[in-house]
């Protein structure tokens, strides 16, 4: 298969770059540092009386960091993937061989996914080993689910940024769009969601429950929020609880009352996963469409 050859070449190429290893080191540091710190603090201390914590605590804390770091790295890994080849002329080598432009985009998504998945896997592996030496009792299933979701988030942002790179005609444009993308998702989205809902309340006069549902829906369309609430969903008792948790601490009670004991289907876990995956496929499709009709 053609795109697999491209993915393999792309990964081979990336593995030889120093920054992939710098990235691995960063991830190992980020994931392993908290447990190492905990281990250090516990040394010599008498074991606590009563129940000790579990690794769920680690997961719960870590997801804040990963929800910012992984998108950032995903974008950095992907946004030059096609523009760089286009500007240097190596794309001409690639497309002189019997590869279609689809093969190039899919191969890049796959290759760069490997580039981000490898350091993530390494970081989690090291963190796991260190956690075994702390007093936290291991909840392996949750830990692995967290690792898998984190890898998926990485994949989504790689897809987004490769799609962007395919659509952009120059590296500079891809960079500007990549920065905008990151700021939009990580910084601006929530206030955007709130503004929209406030406007709806003001001009359309939607009900209280509809207001919470809409704001939740808008927030869930943000891949970083979708990721966080999915992590919470398996840490907490129910998906409903994790959705309610997306609201500020003082609002949670009101929101919980508004929802009652059931979650609308479009706010349930499978739909959240679908929203997350849409961010992987739609930008790739748009990027491919643009890339396929461009003159190189």
């Amino acid at each position: 298969m053609s795109w697999q050859a491209i993915a393999r070449k792309d990964f081979q190429d990336a593995v030889r770059s120093k920054w992939l290893w710098a990235l691995s080191l960063l991830f190992v540091g980020v994931f392993a540092l908290p447990p190492i710190l905990l281990f250090y603090l516990e040394m010599g201390a008498t074991p606590q009386q009563g129940e000790a914590g579990t690794t769920d605590m680690f997961v719960f804390l870590m997801k804040q960091g990963t929800s910012i770091l992984i998108p950032l790295i995903g974008i950095v890994v992907g946004y030059t993937s096609i523009t760089r080849e286009r500007e240097s002329g190596s794309l001409k080598l690639l497309l002189s061989l019997p590869h279609s432009r689809e093969d190039v985009v899919f191969g890049k998504v796959l290759g760069r996914s490997g580039v981000i998945a490898l350091p993530i896997a390494l970081g989690f592996a090291v963190a796991l080993v260190v956690l075994l030496f702390t007093s936290l009792s291991l909840k392996l299933a949750n830990f692995l689910l967290f690792a898998a979701l984190t890898a998926l988030l990485g994949l989504v942002f790689v897809g987004l940024s490769v799609g962007l790179s395919a659509a952009a005609s120059t590296g500079k444009r891809a960079m500007v769009a990549a920065i905008a993308l990151f700021v939009w998702f990580v910084v601006l989205w929530n206030s955007f969601a709130n503004q929209v809902v406030n406007a709806l309340v003001k001009y359309v006069g939607i009900s209280e429950a509809a207001k919470y549902e809409t704001v939740l829906f808008l927030k869930l369309l943000n891949p970083t929020q979708a990721y966080k609430t999915l992590v919470d969903a398996f840490l907490m008792d129910s998906a409903l609880q994790s959705r309610v948790y997306m609201f500020g601490i003082f609002k949670r009670k009101t929101v919980a009352q508004a929802f009652g004991d059931s979650l609308p289907v479009y706010l349930s876990d499978p739909f959240v996963v679908a929203y997350l995956l849409a961010w992987l496929f739609v930008p790739v499709a748009i990027g491919l469409w643009k890339f396929s009709k461009d003159d190189l």
């Binding site: 070449k9 190429d13 002329g89 190596s90 001409k92 002189s96």
Partner: peptide, 10 residues
């Protein structure tokens, strides 16, 4: 092709 470049790291 004309105006190509090779993959530096391969």
């Amino acid at each position: 092709p004309e105006g190509f470049s090779v993959y530096d790291r391969l």
